[in-house]
Amino acid sequence: MKPSPLAQHSTDEAAQPRMVRLIEAERARLTFSLDGAPATAREGDTILTAVLTARRYLAESAGGEDTRAGFCLMGACQECWVAVDGTRARACSTLVTAGMSVATGGHFTVG
């Protein structure tokens, strides 16, 4: 079986996340679940921000051949779909709430 591109990434550059908090970084913390593991976000983070300030990738591309980390951040490109509590949502336009469960593993095709 072809290893998931996400799995290949987890070893390199683990130290630095992708996005860098510059302004008003010290907002209240909240915890949510990311791919089954506990994760921390700041209040007002989108899912995309919360994930990319923790790691360098969001999810596999729709075809599964590479990874993506969002692109337009304004709801136009549709590259940031994740599953939130079992429903699809755009990571760039959905705010994290405490206790939310986010899964980035599978990819979601549009019917």
């Binding site: 996005m19 860098v20 908090r21 510059l22 302004i23 921000t49 300030t53 337009c72 951040l73």
Partner: peptide, 17 residues
């Protein structure tokens, strides 16, 4: 990232891409 997206990261989330 789209350039506008880079700006949204900063303006809306206080982050650099």
């Amino acid at each position: 990232y789209a350039l506008g997206g880079a700006q949204i990261a900063l303006k809306y989330q206080g982050c650099a891409i």
